[in-house]
Design a protein around this nucleic acid. Structure first.
Lengths: 216, 216, 216, 216
DNA sequence: GATGAATGAGCGTTCATTCAT
DNA sequence: TATGAATGAACGCTCATTCAT
């Protein structure tokens, strides 16, 4: 091949190009994120995204299959960040409910407060757009729920307790996810109380823990 | 006398016409509800709604300003039904947390299980469509939250207890609303477990009550 | 006939009804005139006309075949008023160019200054709307031009003079009509100088007379 | 070097593409011109324009903001051609009324006779369509009037004469414009006498000159 | 890899007109 | 005569997507 003399080893310029490629991808994604969050998914056109990212429409289509694909990638990326953030807290305090609590605090303090736009994508823009998107959103939420469920089950194991029903761990996970989401919507997206979000979140976490404990 | 324009009294035919008018409005709304729930708001065209309702496109526009207006009316109507349903349970057991519990049971048993399409409108289709729609959705959710908050505050008064913070009642209301919503999404819209919804809902309600009690 | 006992003689109520009918027709026409003049023919809907005239849409259609028919009637009515006004001046001073001058003065002083809305209909709204309307507008303008032409020919006869060509009288009539129209557009519809219109009109009339005299 | 993005110089293909772009714009404009002139602005649909120009609807919208924008561009382009044509005649004979006369002859002989469709746009289709269009039409007519006014004032200066009033030059300009317009409407748009238009125009020009002379 | 002109199906919306009451 | 709900053809316009360069 004329382009790369030796397969396996990559020339410096090839490496640079690859870096630039990845960078451009991220740029488009970031632009789309803030645009979707600000004006809504539907009100944002591909041309607008291209313009803001300082590339052509064609280039956007080189990196993403279509508009939906951008949103789906956004869900994936942002979702991953969130799971990572929350998941790490679980591990820091595995044995007890402490992990659950820490995760909640992290959600409000490290995610919502810092990246309201990401929350807007996950909890507003990615909802009800199309079946495909809904699928990915469902998948993301389900993963978080599974994470939570697993954590709750491990707590039960370690402490040798049992929840009300076999499905209680899952229900609790769903409830907790619901609390997270609604808190974010209410205090972040609808009423901008991002300054109080941490304090309010503490209360919500307290509620959460109370709920879990009552299910034993 | 032929026209019977005597003030106050309306002729039989005038009354009938009025009834038919209201009926047609309801028909369009019902058709739109099931269409939106089945295929999504965006994938449903005005012509489709008109066809299914067996009227012309113009007639749909005679009753509703535009497509958005249909969705907004749907939010209003369905929202009202839900609030009425849940609100009545509050009253049946005012003094204690019983009302909260009854309301939760009613939500899952009387609303979700019976009208999954209405839940789909409220919790999926009405999300992230436009600023105007979002406004109305916010308004609806906020009302339910206020209802819950008031109920929680009355409970505290009667039983002479105090919650953790001044804003705790509100936060709890937000949490409960979140639990409702997520349960509906998870077990109704994403995974059709409408048969188990009552049992699962019971667990969620138990979680709810536990949460509230822990906030005292 | 049950309705009118004797043909030929009309009962009082029948007369009254007829008067009311004619009145209603005039009302609709007047409303349409001011609406067309204010917002333009196309931006005015039949329902709007009906509302303002305090009748139903159906009633408007009882009096006029369709929307175009209203405009055509307006052209007819307003055109007739204008021709009458201008025509009477011709007669007051038949022998000389005085009639032409008087007619011009009347056009600016008695028509433009007093009924700018009528001028707007004739010189703006009735232009370029449809073939049918254009036909009626052409017919109206042609009549005025014929009036002018006849007047100019009578002047020539009486004073025993001849114009440059056989068609000169007609061309002059066209020119004069053009002057009227443009003056109205410029000083009435585009720049509101309705206060100066009489003075400005005098100059235009002077120009007109000069033009005619030079054609001998 | 492959892309030759050296500033200033454009590659051949880039130049060609630019030429083609401008050409396409002109094509659409020409098609629209003849369509509007033939069937009227309102009876001509965007799809029709696109079809005739052998492009897609989207392409038309790529070059023009909306339908109105096409008409406005038409007014601008045609108006510019007319002003250029007439304006050049002024200069050829600046000192005397000769320029005014030459301009009139040119209007009838070089504009009306040769491009009746352009006259139809300017004097019929662009009238009474919308406020925006009216604005542009006003602007065009006003420019011609200003041109004429300036010419008339220069004539007065050179020949050291004075008109009746301070505003006489403007009024005369308005009158002349009116004569042009009405002549075009009458003998071109309403009655097809395009063969006689030059002869008829001569008479009108004679009238014009007479009018001006009488205002001294 | 990048460009951006071109596409065209699809959409929401309007409004003059009709007609049963 | 008068009403006003119902009609539906027609329209302007959008925008995600493609592809020749």
């Amino acid at each position: 091949m004329a382009k790369s003399k030796k397969s396996g080893t990559k020339s410096r310029s090839a490496l640079r190009r690859e870096r630039e490629k990845e960078l451009r991808r991220k740029t488009i994604l970031n632009i789309a994120e803030s645009l979707f969050a600000k004006q809504g998914y539907h009100r944002t056109g591909m041309e607008e995204i291209a313009d803001m990212a300082e590339v052509s429409v064609g280039t956007v289509y080189f990196y993403f299959k279509n508009k939906e694909d951008i949103l789906i990638n956004l869900i994936g990326d942002v979702g991953f960040q969130l799971r990572k953030l929350v998941g790490e807290e679980f591990k820091k305090a595995d044995a007890s409910l402490d992990g659950i609590q820490k995760a909640g605090v992290a959600f409000f303090g490290q995610f919502c407060a810092k990246y309201p736009e990401k929350a807007a994508i996950l909890f507003r823009e990615a909802v009800g757009q199309s079946q495909e998107v809904e699928e990915h959103r469902k998948s993301f939420i389900s993963k978080v729920i599974t994470d939570l469920k697993n954590a709750l089950e491990r707590v039960a194991e370690k402490q040798d307790i049992k929840y009300r029903n076999t499905f209680s761990a899952e229900v609790m996970a769903v409830c907790i996810m619901g609390i997270y989401e609604q808190m974010a919507c209410h205090y972040l997206l609808w009423n901008d109380r991002s300054e109080d979000i941490v304090a309010l979140g503490e209360d919500a976490v307290c509620f959460t823990i109370g709920g879990v404990e009552s299910m034993v």
